[in-house]
């Protein structure tokens, strides 16, 4: 049996005296779609940050494909090669085009063929918007570019932190459609954090995990 893609073992984290996560363990298989739910301030984002090697946990271990990440120091190269991020506020480079926003990540990583960018952008319905600055796109269009960018470095794990929080229900649903379509096309594992209970109804989720007061429960 192969090792899980991501494994959190007894992970705890605190910011000063504030304990955010308490002895959390989670195993995620390759290709899974997992939804992390919980109210604001429950520790969802901290959990995603630890899973994405952005944050070193105070206690516990994080393993990626069986390899221990904890204590390795700067993990920028790991993130660049294996992890994709979708941020709530997109954080795109406004002066560059959608194609360039993806290409800059691809170039930084190196090795990913250029034609995959068009393959990522094509299903998003942005064919005639690929070469104009992102600042001229609508909010929904930017969200789609941000989704595509998360896959531009060919990641095995995509982490999405409240990607639908600022969208209306129709656009939120469309965003999830795009997220799952890109995941299917690339085979990437998706872990998404959201406080929106309605998103849990989607059949695409393999698992739904709840975080409350720093503790994890499944179901």
């Amino acid at each position: 049996m192969s090792a899980p893609l991501l494994e959190l073992k007894g992970v705890a984290h605190s910011f000063g005296s504030h304990q955010v996560l308490l002895e959390v363990s989670l195993s995620i298989a390759e290709g899974e779609h997992i939804l992390i739910q919980g109210p604001s301030g429950s520790g969802k984002t901290t959990l995603l940050n630890i899973a994405g090697a952005l944050l070193e946990p105070s206690n516990g271990q994080v393993l990626f494909s069986g390899e221990l990440l904890t204590g390795r120091g700067d993990l920028a190269a790991h993130r660049l090669h294996h992890v994709g991020f979708v941020f709530q506020d997109f954080h795109l480079l406004e002066s560059l085009s959608p194609r360039q926003n993806l290409d800059i990540v691809r170039c930084a990583r190196g090795g990913t063929p250029a034609h995959t960018l068009d393959a990522l952008l094509a299903p998003l319905g942005l064919e005639d918007r690929l070469d104009i600055p992102v600042r001229r796109l609508s909010r929904g269009e930017r969200q789609r570019v941000a989704l595509a960018r998360a896959f531009a470095n060919g990641p095995r794990l995509v982490l999405a932190d409240e990607p639908t929080a600022s969208l209306d229900p129709r656009h939120a649903s469309a965003t999830l459609d795009h997220l799952f379509a890109l995941s299917e096309a690339t085979g990437a594992t998706v872990v998404m954090a959201s406080h929106d209970g309605k998103l849990a109804d989607r059949a695409n989720w393999a698992r739904r995990v709840h975080v409350e007061a720093g503790r994890l429960s499944e179901g």
Partner: peptide
């Protein structure tokens, strides 16, 4: 600031 931070989070090196 936030875009630089996001890009660094994605993995773009500080030097770039």
């Amino acid at each position: 600031h936030s875009r630089f931070t996001a890009l660094h989070a994605i993995g773009l090196p500080r030097t770039s």
